[in-house]
Design a protein around this nucleic acid. Structure first.
Lengths: 287, 287
DNA sequence: CGAATCCTGAAACAGGTGATTCATTCTCAG
DNA sequence: CTGAGAATGAATCACCTGTTTCAGGATTCG
């Protein structure tokens, strides 16, 4: 049996710790774009990963290639073999359980999206974007989701509050709200008893509600302006909020008003993203 | 409907008859290797298709490109957008915003799972299941995720704490930990500056770390016992933590599974514990 | 605190790339 | 037979790529 020479991914993995910081940076980029490695030349690799050409050159050398042409060659041969290219993994484990999980997650996602293509996502986003104040409510297991949504929404607009603030009753939180405001109510299964009362109170006050929940909250749907349904079914003992997170992302970006259809990680944007990342990595205060 | 500029394949098709014999030869080669077009440069194209560089240059010009660089660019954009390879039509039905989003989410999920099938998920779950104390750390945007994971893990085992407790420094939180405990560190991109210090401190103390993050935290991976990588890429302006949530679910159920197998099950008490937890978790409502 | 070592990007340099020019060949029409 | 025109590759040359060198930090070690 022929022992194949290690792929570039494997080489990076095995030597990663021994690489210098800048070399790691370039290596990161390579690992993140293994499939596209053959289309970049060394200069682009350097620019995109934010290091000098010299560093890239040294990295190749250190990974055991004699020059960048050899790397190109290597990347190409990997491509043509259709190999997974991956440094880590690729070994057979217990795919059955993971596969079942994957299927379930996809199904959740699909269902969630299917319930959205009547334009209600857009409508809800518009409602939130135009509201005076936005209050997010998430109790119990929905609390982390609400917290997350607030972090994202806060980047899309002002005046986004999380409602159950410690030391303050929910009543006080929503007392001042009116019909020009919006409440985003995250209410996945295992809602506390008072949930129905919240919905009723808000409706009486004329506060529009965007309800995000699984199907078990259907009875509260007609008390809401929009109901964004999202399944949380899972093959395991616990609910999975993956599709819910996906929905949060859609909602936040909808509010931001960006055109989601814009192509994926375009080369032009890669650099700026990386730059922004590094800026954040260095300074800043802890949480 | 937007009329996209014709692809190079279409341009060749429409002008094929008007091309000179040698140009057709080069064009044939291009058509036969459309998917790999981005990896060849003009000189290689010439050599491989058996024509001179000059002919290739003229061909590009005749196809409406000003430059071979423009062709490269074009070839790349085809790669990143759709499927020059995987079939002709890119499912012309509704490649709308939601579809693009769905595709990206699936890809994230797939990548996440691919990084797991070497058994590291199971290993990490075992480590967590057997640890004396489990401390979850999630800063900034990773905080909601950590919070969520705690809710789920708390159903699978005892002694699961969230570390950045308000009014207490992280140092105090992890001061008492040792090699028999475990820290689950959630560190998705936009980590604060102190992150590296946390990793270092934990390693010095011999506290095993399960790192959950996107690829940007790779540099911290070798300071960790297990690194569960999870992409958060999104077609929108915000990162999507859908795959991350999926991973949390897997991890929690993995831990539960270990404990069930080893007779440490807490299933009987799950509900009551869960409820008690929630009272502590989200500030209680007056309702 | 100083020396040694390593890391790093700027700059120099050698080699390669691709657009253009030019001479040759071939094809027809006259 | 001849001249116009197209096709084509070799040759040229400005430009670009990638390697190496070098000097200025940063870090480590004594």
């Amino acid at each position: 049996m022929i022992t194949a020479p290690p792929t570039i991914g494997q080489r990076i993995d095995s030597q990663y710790g021994a690489l210098s910081p800048q070399e790691q940076r370039a290596a990161d980029f390579i690992l993140d774009h293994l499939g596209d490695l053959a289309v970049y030349n060394a200069t682009e690799l350097a620019k995109l990963s934010g290091v000098s050409k010299a560093t890239v050159s040294r990295l190749f050398r250190r990974l055991g290639f004699s020059d960048s042409a050899e790397v190109r060659e290597h990347a190409r041969s990997l491509r043509s073999q259709g190999s997974p290219l991956g440094g880590v993994g690729a070994a057979a484990g217990t795919p059955s359980a993971l596969a079942a999980h994957a299927r379930q997650e996809s199904e959740n996602l699909q269902k969630m999206l299917a319930g959205l293509d009547d334009g209600r996502l857009d409508a809800a986003a518009r409602l939130i974007a135009g509201a005076g104040e936005v209050v997010l409510i998430g109790l119990r297991n929905s609390y982390p989701l609400a917290l997350h949504l607030r972090q994202q929404l806060a980047q899309a607009r002002d005046r986004v509050r999380l409602a159950p603030v410690p030391g303050q009753s929910l009543g006080e939180d929503i007392a001042a709200l009116g019909s020009r405001d919006v409440v985003v109510l995250v209410g996945f299964r295992r809602r506390p008893a008072g949930f129905a009362l919240i919905v009723r109170t808000l409706r009486e006050r004329g506060v529009p509600v965007v309800l995000i929940s699984d199907s078990s909250a259907r009875r509260h749907a007609d008390g809401s302006a929009y109901w964004l349904e999202c399944p949380v079914d899972s093959v395991s003992a616990f609910d999975s909020y993956a599709a819910a997170m996906s929905l949060m992302n859609l909602l936040a970006s909808g509010v931001l008003g960006v055109n989601v259809r814009e192509g994926r990680t375009r080369i032009a944007t890669i650099t700026s993203v990386y730059d922004a990342l590094d800026e954040l990595e260095a300074p800043t205060s802890p949480y």
